[in-house]
């Protein structure tokens, strides 16, 4: 499944517009690293790549090397915002640092890491 997700992500990099416009929510790379201010969210280069497919919003964490507690909180906020809109969220290509961090909070069951 993970392999399949990655293929999808690779195929449609940065195609967040696939998500219905009213549901469009961006997350920046730096926000996941805990930087909440001074990040230009409109600049597409700053955003985490994502794709929307069959009611699931995928985010590619391939370029995210590190996540801190503020980043986890931002990730949860993103997940909550999308869940409110009825969109399921999956994060793919998360490295071990991110996986371990999520695990340390016991959130691995609730944050879908693909």
């Amino acid at each position: 499944m993970e392999k399949k997700d990655e293929t999808k992500i690779d195929a449609v990099q940065n195609q967040t517009e696939a998500l219905p416009e009213s549901n469009l929510i961006f997350i920046t790379k730096r926000k996941l690293e805990g930087e909440n201010s001074g990040v230009d969210e409109l600049n597409i280069d700053n955003r985490v790549s994502g794709v929307y497919c069959n009611g699931v919003q995928y985010y590619d964490l391939n370029n995210i090397r590190f996540i801190n507690n503020t980043g986890i909180a931002n990730l949860i906020s993103l997940m909550r915002s999308l869940l409110k809109k009825g969109v399921v969220v999956k994060f793919v290509n998360a490295n071990n640092i991110i996986r371990d961090k999520i695990k340390s909070f016991g959130l691995e069951k609730f944050i879908n890491l693909g």
Binding site: G34, N68, N69, A73, L107
Partner: peptide, 21 residues
Amino acid sequence: RREAIMSLAVKDFSEEIRKLE
């Protein structure tokens, strides 16, 4: 320290969900 207070926030969030489950 922001990281300390945020760790508590995330932990509480996770605890609540786990408790319900």
